[in-house]
Design a protein around this nucleic acid. Structure first.
Lengths: 206, 206, 206, 206
DNA sequence: TCCTAACCGAGACGGTACGTCCCGTCTTTCA
DNA sequence: TGAAAGACGGGACGTACCGTCTCGGTTAGGA
């Protein structure tokens, strides 16, 4: 209709802007439903009714149930990386402690299969679930290991990601095999053993 | 479907006996659907149509979709425990190798979330998925470790399940974090490192 | 599926037969909704809720809302042809009377546009609305006219359908133009006039 | 509303006046959609997209979809009354001819149910569809009949609206019953028959 | 010339209907 | 009495539409 070539001073999308409240209401309702009923409780109908947002409006944000569920899971288990102390051995023990805390959270166990789905399927995509969502300190601890392993008397001939993998993985398999999350003691012992096993040959005892 | 070339002899309970073919056809169809379309492709309707078995007949065998899916997953990834050699270090390396092979199987990655669901939910029940389904050698290797660790110069002050947990968990986290399964080299290095770290203090080098 | 040559003594479709009650409940609910809210009140949701029949079950009978609405309209306005007396002039008066009664029915006026839709669109198809649904005596009266016109002193050089068309059409246009249905007097006068105008030239007065 | 006596020079609403182009674009798009997809194709979304006018702007002109559809139908089938010749019999033949032309127009048949809806529902209202929209010459021909019937040798003891009703109605019922519009021959014969039947008893043959 | 109100485009939003698919149960007939 | 077939209640999903609303930007007239 109006073919005025003049560019309209972009920096704002045309049309009514999306209400931030709606985003919040949707995710909030989805989170509550996820907590109470597990992933299959997160129904578009239920989210709409609980949030007071029209179903069609949810589809404006999320292309489908899966995307909403992924976002909800992300919001549910997202943890900020905790600050590292700079003491490599202490930080590895922290990793074990945090992993134990996550696994012991019943809500987390409910959505963990969903997380696996997200991790093992569509590996890319803007809204994909990333491992950092569930294990936020993976990269920092690897960096730290790379920098401080020699000083701490730990092996330097290995993948710096490996220590955290050993700790996290061991605790995860414990949960899978036993059906109950590892205790804090088990987590601590695991951390100790890994640290011990990583000592560089001939290094002085801790 | 109707392969009853054999005449149904005579002596059977009143009524038509359950055809063994039907069980096979159901699981076969479910497996194909699982492979091609993932767990959400395994629909009662689809299984019925593909197998030529009536939906009602499926419900005679399985109490519900979840049970059918569990059975299908079991059939899909079930591995018999492989024989141990009796050489503890070699057997730990075998564990790593087998774990790597499982994780590298694309079909396995497709159904792994379903396995997690099975493991983290209903902890008991006759048809529940058990960890042994996915990690069949867990108990034997733990037994062996208990028996042979001292002789092999490995630590005896730890949970005998721990070595396998470390290996399996580390490789599993690799898959989760990287999105691709660990290579055989990574599996081998991981096994080496774990074995190395488990050496009892003062033991002779391997 | 089963290609056993033996025909299974047909005379009954396999599977659970459709319940006649469900058909009745659907149409009954649709009719009530049609009467109370007009065609736009006949919603699949509303019909399902009111009839107690699941929406999916409605779709087993009717391929869509339009088909259900058509069937409902047919059921709403369907009239059996009334028996003709054999007296042509009297029967033409009966046609006018019945037409007036139909047009005066408020329910009919509500669904008449829907009938027009059915008549002017898809001219064929098994479940199409046919003119006979709304004007059931058209064919019999035309036959009668063909047979008895000469004996009754009426013109024989015209389309035998025409007399009924004139009567019906005139009353219909009255409704359209005035917004209210013709009275019985108007219907009677119209019939009289048509009969009068159809007298064959030179015939004796009635 | 604002009864401030001071007339601001000319009586003109403040602010930007409505663009006449927009009205035209809306109706034009609606007409095209009506022709191509029938009434259910006339969607506010579709009209907006096709016309380049924002949906909100359409609602500035028309209070809702129904009003837009009514206006579109009016624009689609509206015909000006044609001039009467003053020869009553000839004018009745013209009525039949014009009615036939209208009924033969495929576009008309598509929207006719909508017209019926408009005629049988809301009997008043500024934007209601009136019978004159579809049969523009009804009132003039009735007036003429009242004035000239005696002189033309036609009955004067009838509703002067009746002749046109008979002609229009008969042709309309033909369309409804046969599914195809009447031919010009049928229209001509119908007119002839009606004129013939309306002759006052004892009048000289035409 | 500037102000102001209405207009225009774009799109969010609540609400609702539609048609499809699925699950688990049931009701038949057939072997 | 098991198996095959399919009806049935119930419910979720994704799409489309309607009518309202809220933005930013434009434009025509009056002060």
């Amino acid at each position: 209709m109006d073919s005025s070539g003049a560019v309209t001073s972009v920096n704002h999308a045309p049309g009514r802007p999306r209400s931030h409240d709606v985003d919040a209401a949707i995710l909030r309702a989805a989170l509550e439903l996820l907590a109470s009923g597990g992933p299959e409780g997160v129904t578009m109908n239920a989210v709409a009714k609980r949030s007071g947002v029209a179903r069609a409006s949810i589809y404006l944000r999320f292309p489908g149930r899966d995307a909403l569920l992924a976002a909800t899971v992300r919001a549910a288990v997202g943890r900020d990386p905790f600050p590292l102390t700079g003491d490599l051995r202490a930080d590895l023990r922290l990793v074990a402690g945090q992993a134990q805390a996550i696994l012991a959270n019943p809500g987390f166990r409910m959505v963990f299969p969903e997380i696996m789905r997200g991790l093992l399927r569509q590996p890319d995509g803007a809204d994909a679930i990333r491992f950092e969502t569930v294990g936020p300190n993976r990269v920092p601890i690897a960096d730290e290991y790379r920098r401080l392993a020699a000083g701490a008397g730990l092996r330097t001939d290995i993948d710096p990601d490996l220590p955290a993998r050993l700790i996290l993985g061991s605790l995860l398999v414990y949960l899978m095999a036993e059906g109950v999350p590892p205790t804090t003691e088990i987590a601590a012992e695991t951390a100790e053993l890994v640290i011990d096993g990583l000592k560089s040959p001939g290094a002085p005892p801790s």
